[in-house]
Design a binder for these strands. Structure first.
Lengths: 356, 356
DNA sequence: GCGAGTGTGGCAACCGGTTGACAATAGTTC
DNA sequence: GAACTATTGTCAACCGGTTGCCACACTCGC
């Protein structure tokens, strides 16, 4: 307490920022208890189990809490209960705009239920991602992998420890949130087919990207039925540069249209092509995935398959919270009926009729 | 539940996700202590104060820890020490690309020192921001306000409780990280002056944006000396829509050039102008601030004043960590010598000669 | 008037670390 | 060999909540 004096060091009036901050001792339930003249445990009950306590006592406690401007200490609660009211979010690359759409959805859903997001980036490295995952794991109630470069085994191991939801990757035994790949690819191919493209290249993303592989598989499966051939180019970095670097191989492949792994690559490719005097879509049609921020700024504006990642982020948090609840109630969690995550063809200007 | 649950059975293979997770009891220092045959407090010292313990004992403890795959429980440490190894990041709008540049810089600097970022969005609302700030405050070591809509008083109050760094706003008595406003405005005006613009509009951001006000003031101060007039339009939302909505008033103001509060507004305005058949930069020149992702995708590509926000995020974290250290050592924190955050004129295509 | 049932609130242990105080042991000096 | 210091490890209290268990007071039914 402050009333008691320091025996010999009279703590002189210190200037600067630090001094004020010393007044940081936040009020605790013990302070409330003293003020409301009850036992601390009663305060705890009044605040966290409404109804357990006599309504009059509860109100007395609540007003004391308000008077002291009491804030519960999350860490103190977390220690005995394990509940941290926190969800960890792991992303491979913060600067990919597709990611923040997901984060926004997740943030909203989390804040709505009083949860806070803990963020970690792995910079496209599996090792750093594993490290980050283990760093945040003890202090979160659940983990969401937005774009992961981890191996299936590593993910399963994490899922053993905490509720875990994966976006954009399908793993057996793990709650996965994946847009309908085949439908998206079908939308892409149908659009290209209508415009009479038959020779199509797929510019792949990183090898460790499950989604890139899934799209490649779906393309190979669906192209023949439409009389189309698929040339796979890659793997490459899922960035503007990665797209740009693929141009030579695209040109060498003698195709009239390109499906890029994501919008970033599509835009990189498109800009490289334009810079070389190749007309888009006159000589080369380009189609992306995601519909990221800025994809309608390009010229021509990018035709793309929109992935509703905000929805995915939102759903991921809801699932995570449900899993947390199921854990707490010691009941089985089962994936709820949810609307599927449906892709949508956004026709803009980067895909045109095949040159003849 | 299908599993037989005889108490001594060697945990039969139970189906379902929950069952596995029950094995979540993480090893503690008590487990290590038992294995290494020392007292738990010795384990604590060995792990967190290398050298305090006999080197042989320490190594025995470390290998026991490794063997058990021990992870320190951050909450348990945080409770007595107050150190959470966590920095809170508050942003007004996650979907503004300028923000994630800053986050990336912050994330890197934080991860480097073993710190984790806690993220909260306030959706451009001061009230929600205050709420979010108080929610995360107890569980972070420091707070960084990337783009804040809080009042000065609210910020000062937060700064009293925890180390706090503000980006893009100058507040007396608070560690502020602000790019050189006057220099940026000078760069903008010089560029416009060279192209013989004399009537310029400033499309302002939100009223609560300190930076918008600062730019407006600097414009008013610097324009006359260059023989220019400034019309201020706004305030408006710092978004694509906000920029679009300003078009009518820009046209009514009879100017040849526009300086927008940020790139988002600049792009929104430019697209609205183009849609109305107004040539950019033929009839109207547009200049933005930030150099966000995508600002070079537009047609014409956006001329803008680049703010190195990645650097700002990085510096903010470093400062925050230094303040935390200073607090721990009970020493005075003083702002270090840092390179100033210098803006840079990025000339692209949205500013041209004034029509005559 | 008595026992059972219910509502209320206190006691104390616990979560997993940290740390000041101190005891035990080892090492040094005279 | 005694006195003294340095090193090493132990004990126990503490951080701020949560919760099982229990005591007490009161109501109700018979």
């Amino acid at each position: 307490m402050s009333a008691e004096d320091s025996p010999d060091a009279p703590t002189p009036p210190v200037t600067g920022v630090r001094a004020n901050r010393r007044a940081k001792s936040a009020p605790t339930i013990y302070d409330i208890a003293r003020l409301a003249e009850v036992n601390p445990s009663t305060v705890s009950r009044a605040l966290s189990q409404p109804g357990r306590i006599n309504i009059k006592t509860e109100q007395r406690i609540r007003s004391a809490a308000k008077q002291l401007n009491y804030r519960l200490n999350p860490m103190a609660r977390a220690l005995p209960t394990g509940r941290t009211s926190t969800i960890g979010l792991l992303v491979a690359d913060i600067t990919n705009p597709m990611f923040f759409t997901a984060v926004r959805g997740a943030e909203r859903a989390a804040a709505e239920r009083g949860y806070t997001l803990v963020l970690a980036e792995s910079q496209e490295s599996g090792a750093r991602e594993a490290e980050a995952a283990h760093r945040v794991l003890p202090s979160v109630d659940a983990l969401i992998l937005v774009v992961t470069r981890l191996s299936d085994e590593a993910i399963l191991e994490l899922a053993d420890r905490k509720p875990l939801v994966v976006i954009n990757r399908m793993i057996d035994g793990v709650s996965s949130l994946v847009p309908d790949v085949d439908r998206g690819i079908a939308q892409a191919l149908n659009h290209l087919a209508e415009l009479r493209h038959t020779a199509v290249a797929f510019v792949a993303g990183p090898e460790t990207s499950w989604m890139s592989g899934a799209r490649a598989r779906s393309l190979r499966a669906q192209a023949p039925g439409r009389g189309m051939t698929i040339v796979e180019i890659g793997p490459g970095a899922p960035t503007l540069d990665g797209g740009r670097d693929a141009l030579d191989r695209v040109l060498a492949a003698d195709v009239t249209a390109v499906v890029a792994y994501n919008d970033l690559m599509a835009i990189g490719l498109m800009r490289a092509a334009t810079a070389q005097g190749i007309a888009v879509p006159g000589q080369l049609s380009i189609l992306g995935f995601d519909d990221i921020f800025g994809s309608d700024f390009t010229s021509p504006p990018l035709t793309t398959i929109r992935i509703p990642l905000g929805l995915a982020g939102d759903l991921a948090v809801r699932r995570a919270l449900d899993m947390i609840d199921a854990d707490a109630a010691d009941t089985e969690y089962s994936t709820p009926d949810e609307p599927p995550i449906l892709t949508e063809l956004v026709i803009r200007g980067s895909v045109g009729p095949a040159p003849r």
